[in-house]
Amino acid sequence: MQSIVNTSSKVLLNYFKGDRETVENRLRNMVDVRDVADALVLAYENPEASGRYICSSHPLKVSDMINILKTLYPSYPYPKNFVETDGNITCSSEKLQKLGWTFRAIEETLRDSVESYKAFGILN
């Protein structure tokens, strides 16, 4: 892990702080970095690959993400209220999936992220 917490990790870590009771319930397009690496190798090694690919596996509302995290890590002080937002954008990885790309379950990605943050002392 790098010495500075990246922006994507900061977004997730903010939900563990408990300093905000209300958060925007926006749609987040998530992807595991390991799945991105797999997608790159697949595209490089597949002669049928051409053009650009979107690599996004889990469009997920913040409230759904927090519910998963609550199930995995119930002792953290998560936000309790959600404000719905407009203008949510989703991305499709259908073209990449047609090449054979698959992605991890969101529970695995979230669990492994939290365990990584704990191992590096970023999260108690």
Rank of each mutant, 00 (worst) to 15 (best):
V114T: 00
A49V: 07
D64I: 05
A39W: 06
I66A: 06
Q2N: 14
F103C: 13
A39H: 04
F120N: 12
D112I: 01
T7F: 13
P47L: 03
I66H: 07
D35A: 03
P59C: 04
I54D: 10
V31Y: 00
S75M: 13
G121D: 10
K95T: 05
A43C: 12
A37T: 08
V41N: 05
E21G: 11
P79H: 01
D35H: 03
E45N: 10
F16S: 08
D64G: 02
V62D: 02
I54P: 06
R20K: 15
L40K: 07
P47G: 07
K98R: 12
Y15L: 10
R34I: 05
N29M: 05
A37C: 12
I54M: 14
L123G: 01
R28V: 15
T85A: 13
S116H: 11
T102K: 12
G100T: 06
K98V: 11
V23L: 04
W101G: 05
T22G: 09
L72T: 02
C55I: 09
G87R: 07
V41P: 01
V5F: 05
E21L: 15
A39N: 05
Y73W: 07
V114D: 02
P74I: 07
M30F: 07
G51M: 02
N67K: 14
R111N: 08
